[in-house]
Amino acid sequence: MRPPQPDARPVALTIAGSDSGGGAGIQADLSTFAAHDVFGTSAITAVTAQHTRGVDSSHVLPRSEVAAQIDAVVGDFDVGAAKTGMLASADLVSLVADRAADASFPVVVDPVMVATSGDRLLDRDAEAAYDDLLAEATVVTPNADEAAVLTGIEITGVDRAVEAGRGLLERGVDAALVKGGHVPGETITDVLVAEADTVGDRGATVGNGDEAGEIVDGAFVATFEHDRVDTEATHGSGCTLSAAIAARLARGDDLVDAVGGATDFVARAIENHYDVGTGPGAVNPQADRRTVD
């Protein structure tokens, strides 16, 4: 009889909607966790009929079912980090805020409000319910449109992103990563604004020693730049980014390293996207493991 060879690895939890097309939501999150050698667990909030062109329909699960999933995971696994995605209703936002308040692990909040295709994924009552969840978040990762909804600030460049990030800190979040993918330009600049004590003493450098940011008026501000890839195949990019941050936090990275590594990871996932469906395609969380015959 052969002895077992168990594989012990960190555990992460995604609380998000299911994408029947496989490119975003729970499916993208679990693929991203696996790419980081993290064991993925999930609590599904909604089931969507979705593909590379858009969202056809969405069915929100009852609060009790979502709560049961979260409690089952947290009650059995040593969760190292969690992320949220599509929460769909004010009731589910409130539930997740309650569970996040009791969590002993970092929580990454991706305030999914609008799909890449432009379809709304969150009702307006739920948008207004985000204050309690933001107050429990380790980092929130809005794109420019979501940051505008949450703060009333139109993101036109780095300065406005920093302003929006500071506004989110005032609402209780420890850190905000305002994504620049929806801001026109040859370069994509993601802006991290964090409470100074969140980044610790090492502050201004990322793990490879590159300059990352500085303390400005009491807050840590860092920018992460990548050349824009000439493609519309960005379906699932926001889910993949927040999942990558959560996976890296679960593995023990500090916040700045986690964000820097995750933005690099997503840039590669977009460049090497999946050419699937009749729409533009979807990001590829397994790009780093791609083999060529």
Rank of each mutant, 00 (worst) to 15 (best):
G260K: 08
A126T: 07
A129L: 00
D37C: 08
H226T: 11
G218I: 14
A100M: 03
G260R: 14
P111M: 02
A262K: 08
S42Y: 08
A262L: 13
G279V: 06
D145T: 14
D217Y: 04
A49S: 15
I15W: 03
V140F: 04
M1D: 14
G181T: 07
T198H: 11
L241A: 06
V79R: 07
D98N: 13
S31D: 13
T84F: 00
D71E: 15
V107D: 06
S57Y: 05
V229E: 15
A212E: 04
V183C: 10
A262W: 10
G200F: 12
D19K: 11
D91M: 01
G21D: 11
G54F: 02
S57C: 12
G85F: 03
P3M: 11
T84E: 01
D190G: 01
T48G: 05
D227R: 14
V149H: 00
A267D: 10
A212N: 11
K179F: 02
D119G: 04
G281W: 06
S57R: 15
H226F: 04
A287I: 06
A244S: 15
V47L: 14
V109P: 04
V109S: 02
G165M: 02
V11N: 13
A28M: 04
T41K: 03
S237P: 14
Q69P: 09
N284V: 11
G180C: 06
V47G: 02
Q286I: 01
G75N: 08
E225H: 13
A247E: 11
